[in-house]
Computed example of a mutant assay.
Amino acid sequence: MDIRLDDLNGPEIKALLQEHLDDMYQTSPAESVHALDLSELKQADIRVWTVWEQNQLLGCGALKTHSAEEGEIKSMRTSNAARNKGVASTLLQHILNDAKQQGLTKISLETGPQDFFAPARALYKKYGFAECGPFADYQPDPYSTFMSKTL
């Protein structure tokens, strides 16, 4: 697997992020969807990586920096063809290592409590994330589960 910092200009990443947004809007009410669109992911405080095998996009994930100490995982997505092949674990480890190199001491994320998100919650728990309250600008929401990890 080849992990690349992505400029978000390729058709493959655009399609994968649209698939991600479509699933989020099918799973949660619009006001409870916190996934970022392509333009929002192009902000200076966000780094996005993609995972490739040869010319096939397997997944993506992002790290948003909130402060010198805190970051947030955004837009974690594995393509349907690459599910259960270790892509998300590999990418999560990469993002956590990058966060440590930046000097971040806490990483948080928002995901859903619905069954659709059970694999994501299990992955994060496996890597030491624990449920927490809302962070950054988030508010309590019945369609959100907040998790964090101290690095």
Rank of each mutant, 00 (worst) to 15 (best):
D2M: 15
D2A: 15
R4Q: 13
R4S: 14
D7Q: 07
N9A: 12
A15Y: 07
L16T: 00
L17I: 06
L17D: 05
Q18H: 04
Q18L: 03
E19Y: 04
L21G: 00
D22G: 00
D23A: 12
M24T: 09
Y25A: 00
Y25Q: 01
Q26E: 11
T27P: 09
T27G: 08
T27H: 08
S28C: 12
P29R: 01
P29V: 02
S32P: 03
V33T: 04
H34L: 11
D37V: 00
L38E: 02
L38G: 01
L38D: 03
L38C: 00
E40S: 03
E40L: 00
A44T: 12
I46Q: 01
R47I: 14
V51Y: 10
G61L: 02
A62H: 04
H66G: 12
H66C: 12
S67F: 11
S67C: 04
S67K: 03
A68F: 15
G71C: 10
K74F: 05
S75P: 06
R77S: 00
R77N: 02
T78I: 01
N80D: 12
A82S: 05
N84A: 10
K85Q: 11
G86M: 07
T90D: 14
Q93A: 14
H94C: 10
H94Q: 11
N97L: 13
K100V: 14
Q101W: 08
Q102M: 06
L104C: 12
K106G: 12
I107K: 05
S108V: 14
S108Y: 14
S108W: 13
S108K: 10
L109C: 02
T111F: 03
T111V: 08
P113A: 04
D115F: 14
F116R: 11
F116S: 13
F117R: 05
A118G: 11
P119G: 10
P119W: 07
P119F: 12
A120T: 02
R121T: 05
R121K: 02
K125Q: 09
K126G: 05
K126P: 07
C132V: 04
A136V: 11
D137M: 05
P140E: 11
D141K: 02
P142C: 03
K149M: 13
